[in-house]
Design a binder for these strands. Structure first.
Length: 801
RNA sequence: GCCGCUGUGGUGGAAUGGCAGACACCGCGGACUUAAAAUCCGCUGGGGGCAACUCCGUACCGGUUCGAGUCCGGUCAGCGGCACCA
């Protein structure tokens, strides 16, 4: 027998697949289709991470199986290539980010191809390709036309030393990650997308898709729908302050109000407030903190009382003080809250710090110790006409009261916020908008798309926080598409999320120059049947792309409401030390090295065998050898081959059970147990000292999606031809059943004996057999059987004393 | 902090509420070899016993059940996300 030369074999089959375009998805709309999708990578300078092949191999397995099952499979790949790291690299090395991207893409592609993944490379897309972002820009313009894109003053992180806008990630401990300089929140006019307009639909349509429960839950929580009330408080200045509350039932317990430090009323009241200096100082301090630091991380509540303006509780006319505090955000609700310290944890903490009255309005807790927030058991008190009602009853009654008295109304609120769509960066899609003094913001005419990125001298953002594009006079100055007068281009670019929000549509028809993809291609391929990606993308990417898809549905570009029918997720691969892989920890595994040492098939096998697909798993340089050994044993089975295209009688049940196990486990992402079943089968072949050609053939078919190269090679050597044109093995449910089964006999839940019984034997047959067992008789000696439990093919349990 | 997930041998992990530890890795013993590597065979959760066997054991505390790794309540620990990394 020739030795297993994996490098040679893998090269051979990869060349064969490329030459024959084996995995090209035809637009043959008569065949049943299957669209398998993995998240396209960001081509970083580090090259492929050992974690990348995990989801890619998983969906490759599904795709290869589907092809053998007769589907026309679309399994595409592309590059999410705009982004901060490339830009930062370009700044540092003064290389055009397009060149950096090109180099990184070439490396990534080579690495992916060496894994033998069955991508259709004819459909490769790249978000930085003008032919691609043409349509990203087109979608933005459609959104603008429908009123979904608007400008708004929003805070950004501003490094006072580098004079650049920083990503949240670049702000570490309140200072700039690169220079350690002070970071402040600076207000800029930003493009926003109205995702909130789709909040209810994004929530409702989760019912129509098959996502993992935890993914649906995460989306639901992120959208954060709550039903509460808006309540109007009159102020001593004669204004109205509207608050949003989910607990209008506790209105009688409102002992003060808190408004966000950015609340516009403060400026209006500046004349009447005697402590404006103190207020401004606090606003300044709050401006340094992120929302996250202000709300969730805050250990101690801070704030300033507004001296000179007070509010009146509409339900009882009581005057209450107004504070500003950074735990109230302008971006949620109305930017103002009524504080009910007795029944809200944050209000309670705040009231303790400022020594404010705490009035119990829901009985059931001990408000001298902590806020009582339980809505299920409480009973209303100190609340006039609400007294004695349950919380739920009180909510209904107070809403009625508010409406009747014109003091407020029911209000549904979402945690979801509109999408900040501008970046003061170079390496992103230019926003195709022009500002005209006369006409305001005007979109570029569609025939002028794509609006390309011009070359600039420096990729550094400017001193005033504008994008590098703003230094380019030739880019900025243009004419208004509407009136023809002088106008200026938008110089901000889009976030990386833009390109990834619709890439799966482009794969359907990647070279179309007339539209983002032909309606026929979209109708045939959509929706994506199975999309696998990381849990870290469950909120932003998944929600953003669902939002864009729904918009495209509304403007009749796509014909289905939801883009992805099924969504699953994979766990990360950690370093050997159980930590995230990183250069600084020195625990990085390079996939090229692994392929060189063991081959792509072994790497694929190990990544699938490493553990539960959905959980994180530490890399083990010794465990991978087990997978190499397994493939060696598969290879060496050649020496055990005996004649016979069928299965031997003694192997029949095991063969059928293994086919069933592998078939089912692939569908439920249990690749590790599928491999274990094949290992057990191979162990049986070795134990019996032989394998028939037919048994070997089936094993190779089952293993093919996992280890495509070695299986094609052996299939050919056995004289069966080309494997990937064959049909996935079938099993017979009846033949999966053994004649006999071992059951256990328990006394009070403890195993006392085991016995073989005919499969499916009835209780009245098995119980006497069980009672005859020596150990059972001994254990029952002098005892009375009180109860007997019989579980068919599993156990008999005697409860006795 | 909030939301979510996870916790099983020396290690990765397996187990529709029904024999805990499948399948592997590591380790140990043996075969082959001048030797080593590779390969093959065997053992391998812990305690006790010459042995048949027996007791303990799925992070911790409690509950439901004939029976709990699995379901319920609570605690602790680790991981992930928290809107400009993607």
């Amino acid at each position: 027998m020739q030795e297993y030369r994996f490098t040679e074999i893998e090269k051979k089959w990869q060349a064969y697949w490329e030459a024959h375009q084996t995995f090209h998805a035809e637009n043959d709309y008569s065949k049943p289709k299957f669209y398998a999708l993995v998240e396209f990578p960001y081509p970083s300078g580090q090259g492929l991470h050992i974690g990348h092949p995990r989801p890619y191999t998983a969906m490759d397995i599904v795709s290869r199986k589907r092809r053998l099952e007769g589907y026309n499979v679309l399994f595409p790949m592309g590059w999410d290539a705009f982004g901060l790291p490339t830009e930062n690299y370009a700044i540092k090395n003064q290389i055009h980010p397009a060149l950096v991207t090109e180099k990184n893409v070439a490396r990534f592609k080579e690495q992916l191809q060496s894994l033998g993944l069955s991508f259709d490379w004819q459909r490769e897309v790249n978000t930085t390709d003008p032919d691609y972002f043409h349509w990203t820009q087109w979608i933005f313009i459609q959104m603008f036309k429908k009123g979904l894109a608007y400008k708004k003053e929003m805070a950004v992180n501003w490094c006072t030393s580098c004079k650049v806008v920083l990503a949240n990630e670049e702000v570490v401990g309140g200072v700039c990650e690169r220079c350690g300089g002070e970071v402040v929140r600076k207000v800029k006019s930003q493009w926003m997308l109205k995702i909130t307009e789709y909040a209810q639909r994004l929530l409702d349509d989760l019912a129509e898709v098959n996502y993992l429960d935890k993914i649906k839950l995460t989306q639901t929580n992120w959208i954060g729908r709550s039903t509460g009330a808006e309540v109007d408080f009159q102020t001593s200045s004669g204004d109205t302050l509207t608050v949003y509350t989910t607990r209008p039932d506790t209105l009688f317990g409102a002992t003060y109000m808190v408004i966000s430090p950015e609340h516009p009323m403060i400026e209006k009241w500046s004349e009447q407030l005697s402590n404006m200096d103190e207020i401004r100082a606090y606003q300044e301090k709050a401006a340094h903190k992120s929302d996250f630091e202000r709300t969730e991380m805050a250990k101690e509540k801070t704030g300033v009382k507004l001296d000179g303006v007070r509010a009146i509780n509409p339900v009882n006319g009581r005057e209450i003080p107004i504070f500003i505090s950074d735990y109230v955000l302008m971006t949620y609700g109305t930017g103002a809250i009524m504080a009910v310290p007795a029944h809200d944890t944050r209000d309670y903490e705040f009231a303790k710090v400022f020594d404010l009255p705490i009035i119990e309005v829901v009985k059931g807790g001990d408000i001298t110790k902590e806020a009582f927030t339980d809505c299920a058991t409480g009973v209303m008190t100190n609340s006039d006409f609400l007294d004695g009602l349950s919380v739920e009853e009180a909510k209904v009654k107070i809403r009625e009261w508010l409406t009747e008295n014109g003091k407020g109304h029911e209000k549904v609120n979402f945690k979801l916020r509109d999408w900040v769509f501008s970046r003061q960066r170079y390496w992103g899609e230019p926003i195709p908008m022009v500002h005209c003094e006369k006409c305001g913001w005007v979109p570029l005419p569609e025939e002028e798309l794509p609006l390309r990125l011009p070359d600039v001298e420096s990729y550094m953002p400017t001193d005033n926080g504008e994008s590098p594009l703003s230094t380019l006079e030739s880019f900025i100055h243009t004419t208004c598409p509407h009136c023809g007068g002088p106008a200026k281009r938008e110089t901000d670019t889009m976030p990386q999320w833009a390109g990834s929000s619709w890439y799966f549509l482009r794969y359907c028809d990647p070279t179309n120059r007339e539209c983002l993809a032909s309606p026929e291609a979209l109708r045939y391929w959509l929706p994506v049947d199975w999309y696998n990606g990381g849990m870290e993308h469950t909120t932003l990417h998944l929600l953003y792309s669902r939002f864009w898809h729904k918009f495209l549905y509304d403007i009749d570009t796509v014909s289905c409401k939801e883009p992805y029918m099924r969504r699953t997720s994979h766990g990360m691969i950690l370093g050997e030390d159980g930590q995230k892989m990183s250069k600084s920890r020195g625990n990085v595994i390079n996939p090229d090295d692994v392929i060189k040492q063991y081959g792509a098939d072994t790497l694929r096998m190990y990544e699938m065998f490493i553990g539960d697909f959905e959980k994180t798993a530490p890399w083990s340089p010794s465990s991978i050898r087990g997978c190499k050994r397994f493939l060696d044993r598969i290879w060496a089975l050649q020496d055990l081959v005996i004649d016979g295209d069928g299965y031997r009688d003694e192997m029949l049940t095991l063969m059928h059970k293994t086919i069933r196990k592998v078939t089912d486990d692939i569908e439920s992402l249990k690749f590790n147990t599928a491999i274990a079943a094949m290992m057990a089968l191979v162990n049986e072949f070795y134990a019996s000292g032989a394998v028939t050609r037919g048994e070997y053939r089936t094993l190779l078919m089952l293993l093919n999606p996992f280890a495509p190269h070695i299986t094609e090679e052996l299939f050919e050597m056995l004289g069966y031809g080309i494997l990937n044109t064959e049909t996935w093995p079938k099993y017979d449910e009846k033949l999966c059943v053994e004649d006999e089964v071992e059951i256990v006999v328990q006394i009070c839940g403890k195993v006392k004996a085991k016995l073989m019984i005919p499969m499916g034997a009835a209780e009245d047959v098995v119980v006497p057999m069980a009672l005859e067992q020596e150990a059972v008789r001994a254990a029952l000696e002098g005892k009375t059987i009180r109860k007997q439990i019989y579980i068919q093919n599993k156990l008999v349990n005697f409860v006795a004393n």
